[in-house]
Amino acid sequence: MKILDFADKLNLDPLYEASKDIEVEGVYIGDLLSIVMSKAKKNYAWITIQTHINTVAVAELLELACIIVVENMEVEEETLDKARELNIPVFKTKASAYEIAAKLYEIGIK
């Protein structure tokens, strides 16, 4: 599923929509960066409550599809600046990680 379609179906609020509409190939949920580094893979959507600038560095290194910040956490401006610089899409939602995961399952990402 393409990233914009995915964001639309999940009702995600775009904080930065990158100029790329890539295929989301998987999902990883996690807030500990080392674990995410070792488990998430290229073109995965990453669901997290982390909002600081280093999340973008992790997403860029792993070539993740996007970052989805859950629980309506406030995302720092410097994080979004970095996301714009590295062209990493960042979305936000009031939903919890579990609710987003359940929706993902519903729309066929298994």
Binding site: L33, S34, I35, V36, S38, Q50, H52, N54, T55
Partner: peptide, 14 residues
């Protein structure tokens, strides 16, 4: 900030 999982050196070795 999400660091300090105690996985840094183990990941590097792995």
């Amino acid at each position: 900030l999400g660091f300090g999982a105690g996985m840094g050196l183990p990941n590097m070795k792995k």
